[in-house]
Write a protein that binds this DNA or RNA. Sequence first.
RNA 1: GCCCCCGUAGCCCAACAGGCAGAGGCAGCCCCCUUAAAAGGGGUGGAGUGCCGGUUCGAAUCCGGUCGGGGGCACCA
Length: 949
Amino acid sequence: MSGDAGTGREEPRMSDETTPGHRYTAELAGEIEARWQRAWEDQGTYHAPNPVGPLRGEVPEDKLFVQDMFPYPSGAGLHVGHPLGFIGTDVFARYHRMTGRNVLHTMGFDAFGLPAEQYAVQTGQHPRVTTEANIDTYLRQIRRLGLGHDERRRISTIDPGYYRWTQWIFLQIFNSYYDAEQGKARPIERLVERFASGDRTWDGKTWAQLSKAEREKVLNEHRLVYLSDAPVNWAPGLGTVVSNEEVTAEGRTERGNMPVFRRNLRQWMMRITAYGDRLIDDLDRLDWPEKVKSMQRNWIGRSHGAHVDFAVGEHEITVFTTRPDTLFGATYVVLAPEHELVEALVPAEWPAGTDERWTGGAATPAEAVAAYRRAASTKSELERQENKEKTGVFTGAFAVNPVNDERVPVFIADYVLASYGTGAIMAVPAQDQRDWDFATVFGLPIRRTVQPPEGFDGEAFTGDGPAVNSGFLDGMDVAEAKKAVISWLEEHGRGRGTINFKLRDWLFSRQRYWGEPFPIVYDEDGTPVAVPESMLPVELPEVDDYSPRTFDPEDADSEPSPPLSRATDWITVELDLGDGPKTYRRDANTMPNWAGSCWYQLRYVDPTDTESFCAPENERYWLGPQPSHGPGDPGGVDLYIGGVEHAVLHLLYSRFWQKVLYDLGHVSGEEPYRKLFNQGYIQAYAYVDKRGVYVPAAEVVERDGKHFFGDEEVRQEYGKMGKSLKNVVTPDEMCDQYGADTFRLYEMSMGPMEVSRPWATKDVVGAQRFLQRLWRNVVDEETGQVRVQDADPDEATLRLLHKTIAGVHDDYANMRYNTAGAKLIELNNHLTKNFPDGAPRAVAEAVVPMLAPLCPHVAEELWAKLGHGESLAHGPFPTADDRYLVEDTVEYPIQVNGKVRARVTVAASATQDEVKSAALAEEKVAALVGTTTPRKVIVVPGRLVNIVL
RNA sequence: GCCCCCGUAGCCCAACAGGCAGAGGCAGCCCCCUUAAAAGGGGUGGAGUGCCGGUUCGAAUCCGGUCGGGGGCACCA
């Protein structure tokens, strides 16, 4: 960790001569916390038993699996924002553990990744060394917080015992194909059997006639992991390729903000697109925030439409459209500049009478096209997006509209994206604004095929309406016309209905050192061969230089050179893979950072299993579908908490792997995370002086609404907590100054879990005062003796107690920790006021367990002081007695014309009529009503009476 | 440009399903303990819910508009 945390600020508050010796100070809290943390660890208090295997034990039917998003062990250590979610899951887990459920809660590390590698490049230290040191620091920091983790289940993605199984899953995916008929993944052998027994041929050869390399080439087209030469995102500045999901809207890398270029490179791809439908459809079965679901739907981007074939001479352009109903209004066709057909279409001369605006000033179509393509290829993604003015050139070719045999010009233009649909569109300017804009620039005809409503004065009309100028479609609405034209196209062999996805296959290789090696070798033909399971894991070799070759970030023509390719002893290997010892070449790429987090919930369940990645019995118990969640339950972690930033990356990849494993019969759940919850962020103020330099936020004081650093006024900013902003507050400091329980309580009291809020160290004391008062109600500060009273509490206290119990149950179960805390404070304030000589034992013995999920250490300590030998971790948690929840009498506010004028108390059993008469009889009300008859009297049972005059 | 979320006391936040605007904390103020101090104790004032309009007997809550803040998507055919 950064060595500066916890230094230089306020010293922990030490008790001096005048502080009572047994007051609940930070010092005492620290002592109690360390002691209980040790006791929990020694006794394995949070060990959750498994049905089978090394962690086997008695398993109650009622289980709960709570998971935090996989942390990356950063070298900077934790600030107070990081543990918010961890504490939230811990409170939830503790509450449910106390009510008797078998609760699985632990934490491991997603420890491969760029920062450790970059640090290694700088220092020459092995990334494993720095990563492991970071993990130690991280563990020490979270241990102080009293998180009830099953520490037997700690895992780390960089552990060969872990990545062995990451590689194993990779091989499962590699050895599968997607059977479109069955709608699921199946072993590749099934496909081989089909090919071998069928009469299909490849270039005239039957399966039996194909060479091994040729067969492998065919299978590569079907495997769920395959080698591709398609354009990928190459970031020369990072020396690696990255996935679509890792590229920002500005066309730069999410990590490092480096420019990205499209390059054809041979890379591993995962066929996630095969799962597009299921990834979208199954969102409906998940208890996730709508926001995240809609982000995933958006990313997958399913749209229903049609492919339509336009003949161009002997060639055919297939366009994708979501509006086949407007086909009669297609007045030109546009190809993306990169479209493979472009060159084949271009004639030698401009056709006679070609509009000057179409030629780009070039003498021949070939020149115009070449110039335009060159210009488009040098534009960055950002430039393409920023400039929304339509550009393009005519190819010189004409296509034939299949429905009306009309000749329409073919253009290339960069407003058509090569990577979406077929990279070609039919342009219908009357019904699409982009096409309208282009048509206007180039003077192309615009023909309405959907009648806009009367008075419509816009340009393109995209709404519903009757078809016009559309032959056999005339009069139909959009939906009808779509159906009709698709059947016409299918009948005439000119097109077909289709579903298109925005989602692309997942680029799965990186040219890095610090990641999982691929369990793949290449034979003398360059054919990839899976490393047998028995030889896993393929371990990372030692190298001298951890860095990939990086380049000038703008050098689009550079070539990736992964660090592993330089490990010459490792890269060449002699293996016997069944046909005798032969020399193979290893794959020099590593897997992306997301690989390890795609399946870690499965390993939490069975962390030490050496026979399988997770025993089926354990998987079914912790992660399988639950009857209590009704039919169609997809299974998964019961509560998964983390930030919203993983909405598409991790959460999409993880769902994909889960579905493959499900199809292959390795897991019983179709989804990895049944319920997802996004916690808010803790943000902080930062202060900038006149020079624009950040000053230490802890030393800034506020006077009259202005902020000063020393004598200088500074400007306040609000945002992230970070070293460079000089506003970091660490959990270590908070534990030193207040104790972990106070810190936990404060974080949970700041507001609901999902809300982002500003950190305010000065407010933490409120949580500490509460714990001190509670402590004092149970323990004599001078002697340390328990001072609870044995006499029975009075009726009012019992009523408040049981109301609190009922409320706190509800709050914990619904993650409303802020209101749970408030209810406990309210009850404690009542005790302080009414029982100056100590709380009644019966009440204290209920309050302490109710506090335990939020503040486990002090609760354990008080529970022990009250004479209990057993830890509170597994309960008891008090239950509310209904007797005290029903009131004998009810006080009704009486409104006259909506304003509260009086109150009246009646028996809780009073009928509405009785309440009404009691209200009307009340003197102030009677005076207001006078002799008139109220127009209306509304009695809301249990709440109020409103008299309308 | 399109879509989503949020505006309650000086600050962070409560208010079940439309029913008395305040549970809790910080800060403030008063008092007590103390030689003194407070991260000790006790007590206490304070907002009509960003703004405008509508529905309703009744609106923080529902609807429409508007302002402010945050987020997502952005030539996806």
